[in-house]
Nucleic acid binder design. Structure first.
Length: 476
RNA sequence: GGCCCCGUGGUGCAACGGUUAGCACGCCAGGUUUUCAACCUGGAAACGCGGGUUCGACUCCCGCCGGGGCUACCA
């Protein structure tokens, strides 16, 4: 039985050292799904304690990516640096209790110590006499620290293999494993859902919590995403960032659906799951244990499904928004195509079933707003043999249609008899028309395309094509 | 090196101590078609290796191999 748990509090805590890539997006999504599933809270915290690498631009980019993905947060964004006071208090507490101490040992000192005491033995230091140095937490030699992971079960880490690790720099600024533990506890986080790369850090955070007397949250470590080369996913793996996915023309709902399936399945063989269904069915404990590889081809397929199933109003809005941001998507006179342009709606309707991504739409609809594109290859392939004859016949047939009734049906009725009349294949008639009006050999259905283009434009373009053919033809 | 995690077709997900190891993407072939896309049909393609446990292991145990993570006064 699944009961709602309003007390569930999860967080997504990215460090702003770069754009949000698909791996981070998945972690964010899983947290968001867990929160929405339980009716709990999704909190956003920015892990910016690394002043060297954290930038406000990156923070802005991450927020932008989350908004685009539709992952709204209930609290935050909270800057970890902004919580420095809390960290300082907690640090002081540990220093006073003796759970932590200042140690002036350098990295080389630690290395030397290990060389002497054995490789599987964590460094153990001693308080510096002058009260300077980094702050280290005392780690016992005996026993294990046990992580009860929601996904992997009980994992034991021998304490002796951990160093007395540094929790604050010499200047008192705290380090990641300390800040995270303090923040998760003080922000009443109940479930920490994060990447696998933090699994080995968890014992450290547990030790901090223990020393502070805080109860520990529950943990769920999801496997990392890898690139096609098997390596940990990074910027080098193509369209890895959320912004790049958006620019590539993917829909947020498709990305949510696809990314959710990377490491998790609904239990049956469903692939297409609306966000609503994801919320209903997602449970962090059902996430798999092995790393997954991002496969853009499947995302493309899935995105195509969403593109085709979208209702027309939204489709037009999405396409218009995308065209506005694409400097190449302009009318012949260089204007942006308005979202309420009648022709846009008409041509979107006939092109909708053909595009897998939003940015595949423009090439299909361009002919309505601009001159035929130059595609010599298409021209050579199609404008040969009896193409001129077919075009001339098509011109005549189209000219015969009343301008007021230039519907798809009328165009179809006018053009359908042609192949038989001319005794040539249908493609030999339709392809030349297609190239004449669009410039290329890929377009929506020919009757629809002609109808949307309109009588005058169609005739004019066929005339232009005919003229070019005549000019090329040495008088026989 | 040490500690830890992981290992089903090319990719993602599934199953189960006993099935012809299932679904999806991709791929190949055929069909449909005015192009492309979509769509329909068919096909190739997997339990990393070796030992056990068991009447029987992809499934349980051990070893190995392979991949990954952590091992910072990074996060």
């Amino acid at each position: 039985m699944s009961i709602s748990n309003n007390d569930l509090r999860v967080r997504f805590a990215p460090s702003p050292t770069g754009a949000l890539h698909i791996g981070g997006a998945r972690t964010a999504l899983y947290n968001w799904l867990a929160a929405r599933h339980a009716g709990g809270a999704f909190i956003l915290r920015i892990e910016d304690t690394d002043l060297e690498r954290s930038t406000t631009e990156n923070v802005a980019q991450i927020l932008d990516a989350l908004r685009w993905l539709g992952l709204d947060w209930d609290e935050g964004p909270i800057s970890q640096v902004g919580r420095a006071e809390n960290h300082a208090v907690a640090l002081e507490k540990l220093l006073e209790s003796g759970a932590a101490y200042r140690d002036s040992a350098t990295a080389d000192d630690v290395k030397a110590w290990k060389a002497e005491h054995g490789n599987d033995r964590g460094y153990r230091g001693s308080p510096s006499t002058d009260g300077t140095g980094a702050v280290r937490l005392r780690v016992p030699d005996e026993g294990d620290t046990v992580v009860e992971d929601l996904i992997r079960g009980e994992i034991r880490f021998p304490n002796r293999s951990y160093d007395d690790f540094v929790i604050a720099r010499g200047d008192g600024s705290v380090l990641y494993n300390f800040a995270v533990a303090v923040d998760d506890a003080e922000m009443d986080i109940t479930e920490v859902i994060r990447g696998d790369d933090h699994l080995s850090n968890t014992p450290k955070q547990l030790m901090v919590l223990e020393a502070l007397g805080h109860p520990a949250p529950r943990y769920a470590h999801v496997p990392l995403l890898h690139g096609p080369d098997g390596k940990k996913l990074s910027k080098r793996h193509g369209a890895a960032s959320v912004q790049e996915l958006r620019a590539a023309g993917y829909l947020p709902e498709a990305v949510r659906n696809y990314v959710a399936l990377l490491g998790w399945g609904p239990g049956d063989d469903e692939n297409l799951l609306s966000t609503e269904e994801l919320v209903k069915r997602f449970r962090p404990e059902d996430v798999g244990t092995s790393s997954a590889v991002f496969d853009e081809q499947k995302l493309r397929w899935m995105n195509g499904r969403y593109m085709r199933e979208m209702d027309l109003d939204r489709y037009v809005a999405v396409v218009a928004g995308h065209l506005a941001s694409d400097p190449l998507a302009r009318t012949a006179s260089g204007e942006v195509i308005a979202a309420d342009d009648e022709r846009l709606r008409a041509v979107c309707e006939i092109a909708q079933e053909k595009a897998q991504t939003v940015n595949e739409v423009w090439p299909l609809i361009r002919f309505v707003f601009n001159e035929p594109i130059e595609d010599e290859k298409a021209w050579r392939k199609v404008m040969k043999g009896r193409a001129g004859e077919a075009l001339a016949a098509a011109r005549k047939a189209i000219a015969g249609i009343d301008a007021d009734g230039f519907t798809v049906e009328a165009v179809e009725a006018a053009l359908t008899p042609l192949p038989e009349q001319l005794e040539i294949g249908a493609g030999k008639v339709y392809q030349p028309i297609r190239v004449a009006i669009t410039g290329t050999n890929i377009s929506p259905g020919i009757f629809e395309s002609v109808s949307v283009l309109g009588r005058e434009q169609t005739l004019a373009r066929i005339d232009t094509a005919l003229a070019r053919l005549a000019a090329a033809e040495p008088t026989a």
